[in-house]
Design a protein around this nucleic acid. Sequence first.
DNA 1: CGTATGGTTGAACCATGTCAACTATAGTGG
DNA 2: CCACTATAGTTGACATGGTTCAACCATACG
Lengths: 282, 282
Amino acid sequence: MFNSANTLSAGTQGYDNRLMTISSDDANTIELPRPALRLSFQTREQSTLRNPVPSVKLACSTCGSRHLCIPIELKADSHEKLNGAFGNTRRVKRGEAIYRAGDPFRNLYVARAGSSKTIAVHHDGREQITGFQITGEYLGLDGIGTDQHTIDAIALEDSVICVIPFKELEALCDGDKILQHHLHKIMSREIVRESALLMMMGNLNAEERVAAFLINLSQRFQERGYSAAEFYLRMTREEIGCYLGLKLETVSRMFSKLQRQGLIDTHGKQTKIVDIEKLRQV
Amino acid sequence: MFNSANTLSAGTQGYDNRLMTISSDDANTIELPRPALRLSFQTREQSTLRNPVPSVKLACSTCGSRHLCIPIELKADSHEKLNGAFGNTRRVKRGEAIYRAGDPFRNLYVARAGSSKTIAVHHDGREQITGFQITGEYLGLDGIGTDQHTIDAIALEDSVICVIPFKELEALCDGDKILQHHLHKIMSREIVRESALLMMMGNLNAEERVAAFLINLSQRFQERGYSAAEFYLRMTREEIGCYLGLKLETVSRMFSKLQRQGLIDTHGKQTKIVDIEKLRQV
DNA sequence: CGTATGGTTGAACCATGTCAACTATAGTGG
DNA sequence: CCACTATAGTTGACATGGTTCAACCATACG
């Protein structure tokens, strides 16, 4: 049911280590997490992506995660063409913005290594996390419609982000039906992902939400070659709650409840799914 | 905040009459609503759109709502080009499906006259209305990602629907940057619309939700030249509840509460916004 | 005009939120 | 390296907004 983008990060047990192994070249130089910012009212510091900052060009062909963001059908020679739009990477540290609501829209983003959250902020300050993104999942689609971003995107950990200038991407699509259709699919899947989330918010109780959240994560890790059963959550209980429409205490209680039932085994952020079938039946 | 698609229909006071006046040629022959189907567990009857059914070709240039679904920048001669993809209309009666989850994806749809709801169905049968669409708002974007529709779209009243073959639309976009970007904007706005809904589901209480719902509707009617202050709701309290993540009793109570406060004036589906400023402050 | 559907309202109940105390963990500075 | 402090997570007791169940009213369609 929650069949598309969402998020957090990391691998089986070894915290960042598996992530490093998997996501190629640049990942292994990522610094480890820095002091966290508070979820709400965090300092609106400038993001490295919004200010001119040296970007590093890394050809997609060297990226172990390229199958996640560019069409697999693309022929080798087409990869050359992509070089204009793809392969510009930037680093962001934990807690930094990739973009902010109100920023002019210019780029889409994909984490090459790392993870992020997207936050919709109500005019009165109330916040809703609309998704967590992991390696290969797109960010920034919200900005196309109004030429301005409408939500914030914040790194959950130090990350390497591919910056894809949207004008150039559209230019590439013009004349490349495969790439064009691929972009449409990405956007459509984001729509479907949010529909599923709405379904959850409208109909599932707290226990079901937490179960669905874990199942969804598990699935996305598996698709990326990580363990589906054991992973490290990059987000806090408060962030999970903000995403699921629950308070952190409720999230915590549901983790405890699922643990008591023997469906999961957690120690803080370290999470193990013991019985995924029963978890699905919650 | 709820700045994009949503729905229901109709004009100021005269039920369908204004709608007829506004939406040009074909609208005035639409039959009035027929017996309603139940919201849940309604018969899965075949939709006229899914079976071969005579479609009527109506050039966009004759459509009073064309500014809502095709780019205004489009030059007159470009309209000729659109003829392949645009202008195929079909009629659906109230309660009939425009498409169903599981249907192969082939077309996008836009109501030329009428309105609809989109419903996500959980595997256990629980339903969530993810949006209401009125004249000029797109339907079917959910199908692009998987080549299958993932939700149901049901007419809220007898409607005239434009059927836009997606392959042909993509072909037209290939070589027309304006149209291509327009499509991207439409999809992006749908993403933003759902983000705003998620925000609502996660953070607003019942009263705030109902207020936000009415404000959003009001705005969309206004954009279409209808009265922002007075309109007829095409959906039931149960459907509103299903959309807002509330029970129909709660929706009803909130309508009564807002009425007692003098912010609105309702008699069943006939709705009048008395004090939109105070309604915004709820 | 009668029946079916939709809408309103009240009362009791319960899932989740709120408030608070406490524990665990991780990053910081001596 | 250890101790200190921040932040994160857990758990309990209580409050409450929204649901549930039920009765009743309104409206519209046949």
